[in-house]
C-alpha cells in the first residue's frame, strides 16, 4: 500500500472522494427532482388559493385550483394577453430582467360563488434575499381580498414573520388605489398609529418591529408589481363599464 502521508496518495484520495461524492449527490438530486418540483407546484397553487380565502392542504390543492381558478393570463406591458406563454410557469425574477416590451406578467383570475377575483404574483427583495407572495383584489380592482407572503432567508422571528397569518390578515380590505384612481399600494408603516388595522382607507398596515427592511420590501414589491398591471386594469374597468 502507498505511503499514507505522501502527496501522491493525498491527491489520489481527494480526487476519488470528490468524484464519488459528486456523482452520488448528482444522482440523488436528479432522481428526486420530479417529486420536489411537484411539491413546489402544488404549494404555489395552495398559496394562490389562500389569497381568496380557500385554505387547503397540498394534496387537495390541484383539484381546488382547477375548480376556482378560471383563467391564467400572461400579460404584456400594454395590458394585452399573450397566448403563446404558459402563465403558470412564468418566473417573475427572469421576467423582470427582460426589456419592458418582452416582459410577461402572470394574472390569475378566480371565481368563487360568482364573485370574481384578480390574483397577482409579487416578487421583491427583503433584507437577506428574495421575498415573494400573491395578492388578490376583489372585483372592484381596488380592495384587497387577501395576501400571502413568503421569503427565502429573512430572519426568523423578525422578517420571517411576514409569512404569519396575523400579518397577512392586516392587508384584507385595504385599498390599493386612492379616491382619484391613482395607484398608491399598501405602505407597511411603523408610524400609522393603527396597530389593529381598523382604518381600511389609509393604504397602510402596521409594520413588524425589528423587520423594517423586510417591511419596506413588501411595500415596494406591492407597488412595483401592481404598477405593471395598470394597463390591464384600465381595459378591464372599461369593459365592465361598457357592460353596465
Amino acid at each position: 500500500m502507498m505511503n499514507r502521508d505522501s502527496n501522491a496518495y493525498t491527491f489520489l484520495f481527494a480526487t476519488i472522494m470528490v468524484l464519488v461524492v459528486a456523482s452520488t449527490l448528482a444522482f440523488t438530486a436528479s432522481s428526486l427532482k420530479d417529486l420536489q418540483a411537484d411539491n413546489v407546484r402544488k404549494e404555489k397553487m395552495q398559496n394562490i388559493l389562500s389569497t381568496i380565502g380557500i385554505q387547503t392542504d397540498r394534496e387537495q390543492a390541484e383539484v381546488l385550483y382547477k375548480k376556482y381558478i378560471t383563467n391564467t393570463l400572461a400579460l404584456n406591458h400594454l395590458g394585452g394577453v399573450d397566448d403563446s406563454v404558459d402563465a403558470f410557469t412564468l418566473k417573475l425574477n427572469y421576467e423582470l430582467k427582460k426589456p419592458a416590451s418582452e416582459q410577461r406578467f402572470p394574472m390569475y383570475k378566480a371565481e368563487v360563488e360568482n364573485t370574481k377575483f384578480y390574483i397577482i404574483p409579487l416578487r421583491g427583495s427583503g433584507l437577506w434575499d428574495a421575498i415573494w407572495g400573491y395578492i388578490a383584489l376583489k372585483a372592484d380592482i381596488n380592495t384587497i381580498q387577501g395576501a400571502v407572503f413568503d421569503h427565502k432567508g429573512e430572519t426568523a422571528g423578525l422578517g420571517a414573520e411576514i409569512t404569519q397569518q396575523w400579518f397577512q390578515d392586516r392587508f384584507t380590505d385595504e385599498k390599493v388605489f386612492d379616491t382619484s384612481g391613482k395607484l398608491v399600494g399598501i405602505y407597511v408603516s411603523k408610524t400609522n398609529n393603527d396597530p389593529k388595522d381598523t382604518d381600511k382607507d389609509d393604504h397602510e398596515v402596521d409594520a413588524i418591529s425589528g423587520a423594517t427592511i423586510t417591511g419596506d420590501g413588501v411595500t415596494d414589491m406591492i407597488m412595483e408589481r401592481l404598477n405593471h398591471y395598470i394597463p390591464y386594469f384600465e381595459k378591464e374597468k372599461n369593459a365592465t363599464a361598457l357592460l353596465n
Binding site: L25, T28, L32, L35, Q36, N39, R58
Partner: peptide, 15 residues
C-alpha cells in the same frame, strides 16, 4: 454530503 442527502430527501417526501 450526508446533510445534502437528508435535505434533498426531506424536500421530496416531507416538504
Amino acid at each position: 454530503a450526508m446533510v445534502i442527502l437528508v435535505d434533498q430527501i426531506l424536500r421530496a417526501y416531507a416538504y
